[in-house]
Simulated assay, not measured.
Amino acid sequence: MSLQIINLSKKFGSQTALNGINIEIGKSEIIGLLGPNGAGKSTLMKSIVGALKIDQGAILFNGKDVTQNETESKKNMGFLPENNPLYPEMYVKEYLNFVADLHKIRKERIDEVIELVGITPEKSKKIAQLSKGYKQRVGLAQAILHSPDLLILDEPTNGLDPNQIIEIRNVIKEIGKEKTVILSTHIMQEVEALCSRVILIHQGNVIQDTNIDEFRGKYGSLEEAFASYTHE
């Protein structure tokens, strides 16, 4: 698996969301994508998965331009957006059957993923009946159902209780042993627990791209390092 982001820029009117971003990502990495609110993280993730049109630059996934190979690229990417769009009137297993049909994958895989993300007790419920934690797990299940090479997660533990956070982290850690994960989060303990590399975006620019120890550097914690790097 390889992902190359080359001179990527994106504007919304007069506002520059991404300003000539260059990033290279290889196989079996869990990368913490950090930045203040409005830094450009979600814009970058949506650009990679093809949910936003690229203004300038290129994104190469496994050596191929994602804009010219959209279907092939999306077959090998999984995405859990921050707002986790689900169909509330569908039952959990019904929804995952629907996703499996879209990807043309075997139905046995559904039960494997249900067990992996820990939603076995809830699989016969309507999505609308689930707690936020279980909805997040259903969103994660759809993102990994087709065994993508690249998994992109936008605030995956947002709103979860401490036990749920640990469980979701364990799932992500397992996936990261074989796949590449880009994880956007504001929770520095999450970065510490999961990530080997940090990419920090501020005002549409990559200002740090390094391993976690170098990112922390002279600071006492990741929070201190983050605050220093992004201080106006």
Rank of each mutant, 00 (worst) to 15 (best):
K46V: 10
I30L: 06
T230M: 09
G204W: 02
I31R: 07
S14N: 14
G35I: 12
I201L: 13
L86Y: 08
D55H: 04
P148V: 09
E178H: 14
I23Q: 01
G139F: 03
N37K: 11
T157H: 03
R106S: 13
K135Y: 04
L18S: 03
I175C: 06
I6V: 13
I212E: 04
D55N: 12
K173Y: 07
G13A: 12
N7R: 13
V66G: 02
V181H: 05
Y95H: 12
E223P: 07
S9C: 07
S184P: 10
E224L: 06
V206W: 00
K173W: 07
F61D: 06
S28T: 11
K177H: 07
L34M: 06
A128K: 15
K218L: 12
F12G: 04
N163L: 15
I59Q: 02
F98Q: 11
I25E: 06
G118R: 00
R109C: 02
D111E: 14
K135H: 10
G204H: 00
I182P: 04
D213F: 10
S2G: 09
E115N: 12
T71F: 15
H186P: 07
G159K: 10
T43K: 03
L3G: 07
L96V: 05
S131T: 09
Q208R: 14
I25V: 14
V113N: 11
M90E: 08
T71V: 15
I182W: 01
G35D: 02
E94P: 08
H231N: 13
S147I: 01
S2E: 12
E223M: 09
A58C: 11
K10I: 06
A39G: 03
K75P: 00
K46L: 07
K177W: 08
R216S: 02
A51V: 15
L18K: 00
D209G: 01
E232P: 14
T120F: 15
V92G: 03
P156T: 04
K27G: 06
L18R: 00
N19F: 03
E24P: 02
K11N: 15
L34V: 11
A51W: 05
I23D: 00
D149Y: 00
L151F: 07
A193P: 01
L200G: 06
I127E: 02
N7H: 10
V99K: 08
A128F: 10
K53L: 11
N205I: 05
L60C: 05
G176P: 11
G78T: 05
E112F: 04
G38L: 10
I31S: 10
A193D: 14
G159N: 05
V181E: 03
L151G: 04
I182E: 05
V171M: 09
Y95M: 08
I25W: 01
V138Q: 12
T67Y: 02
Q129E: 15
D213H: 13
D209I: 01
K41E: 12
